[in-house]
């Protein structure tokens, strides 16, 4: 793995929101990970754990409070000229969760997909642009006939494919998929996931796949990072993480997922976590997970566990594995 080229290095990324009355929401708090070229990194966690904020900060929809996002050796957080900014935007794209609200209802599919092309290649003639859009539609399983339709005429899965085509329009290298299948029906989810995998192979894309559905993340990702309350608690290869989860939260998360197999379900012992996720405005001291952790110790309330590599390429932040 270490031979692989790093595409993105996220270093001590923090994103705090000022929520008024002197309160600060630490949505992403000191997160570090690397994304290698051509891989899919899964980012899982429950709602409010900061996974979407992390994605949006990496793509600079939000300005980071501190920390670095280094893309191909270049720090994206440093102020840059408009031209540099634009070329950076071309390299990173995003696919969104809600297939309907992610498409402008007053624009045709052609206009939606052509927008990015127009922004980056101003001199392109409209005929050429159209041809490009038709190609993109084909590549996501739609066709010419759909080009002058409006988003509300499409089903959720089709809308999501239009969103993918829009992201691909500027020929990016890296795509953040922010819960791209959460709003879709089961039978449609597989269509989208297969399409994403197919496109990755064809175009050599790198993905950051954000989701709460661990079984789908495991299916699509090479490595998985698990987030809890603004911090990454475990990062490992997806098979490794599933076979040998180290962090008590990962263990609980894995055991909480109902498996669509009644025989397995009948014999399965669940780790049921007590209580709810604490208020992120007022996170617990020490380890963030300690209030729900079945294996919490005294030290967990006092010291924030260190991010350490326990075995090769398996990182965890937990006092249980202190060397």
């Amino acid at each position: 793995m270490s031979e692989k080229e790093k595409l993105i290095e996220v270093k001590n990324l923090k994103k705090y929101f000022n929520v008024g009355k002197g309160k600060i929401l630490k949505a992403v708090d000191d997160v570090s990970f690397d994304i290698y070229k051509g891989e899919t990194l899964g980012l899982v966690g429950e709602s409010g754990c900061g996974k979407s904020t992390a994605g949006r900060t990496i793509i600079q929809l939000y300005n980071a409070t501190s920390g670095q996002v280094i893309y191909d050796g270049e720090d994206t957080q440093v102020k840059k000229s408009a031209v540099d900014k634009k070329s950076m935007k071309k390299k990173m794209q995003m696919i969104y969760q809600d297939p309907y609200s992610s498409l402008n209802p007053r624009m045709t599919v052609l206009e939606i997909i052509a927008e990015g092309i127009g922004n980056h290649e101003v001199q392109l003639k409209s005929k050429e642009k159209e041809a490009r859009v038709y190609d993109l539609l084909e590549s996501v399983g739609l066709n010419k006939k759909h080009a002058n339709r409006y988003p509300h005429e499409f089903s959720g899965g089709q809308c999501q494919r239009i969103g993918i085509a829009r992201a691909l329009a500027v020929a990016p290298e890296f795509i953040i998929a922010d819960e791209p299948i959460a709003a879709l029906d089961v039978s449609i989810q597989a269509q989208i996931v297969n399409l994403l995998q197919e496109l990755q192979q064809k175009k050599g894309l790198t993905y950051l796949f954000i989701a709460h559905d661990l079984s789908m993340v495991k299916h699509i990702s090479d490595r998985i990072a698990v987030m809890y309350l603004g911090g990454v608690v475990e990062l490992a290869g997806s098979e490794d993480l599933y076979d040998n989860p180290l962090h008590p939260y990962t263990q609980a998360l894995l055991s909480a997922i109902p498996i669509p197999d009644p025989k397995i379900e009948r014999t399965r012992e669940r780790i049921i976590l007590k209580g709810d996720v604490p208020n992120p405005m007022d996170p617990p001291s020490g380890c963030r997970f300690r209030t729900r952790c079945p294996k919490a110790m005294q030290i967990c309330t006092e010291i924030v566990p260190e991010w350490q590599e326990v075995s090769s390429n398996h990182f965890v932040a937990c006092h249980l594995y202190k060397q």
Binding site: L61, Q93, Y96, S101, H120, G163, R166, A169
Partner: peptide, 17 residues
Amino acid sequence: GQEYILAARTLGTSNSK
């Protein structure tokens, strides 16, 4: 806050557009 506005921003759309 709509996602299509975010999408347009990540595509490098200018403010006036």
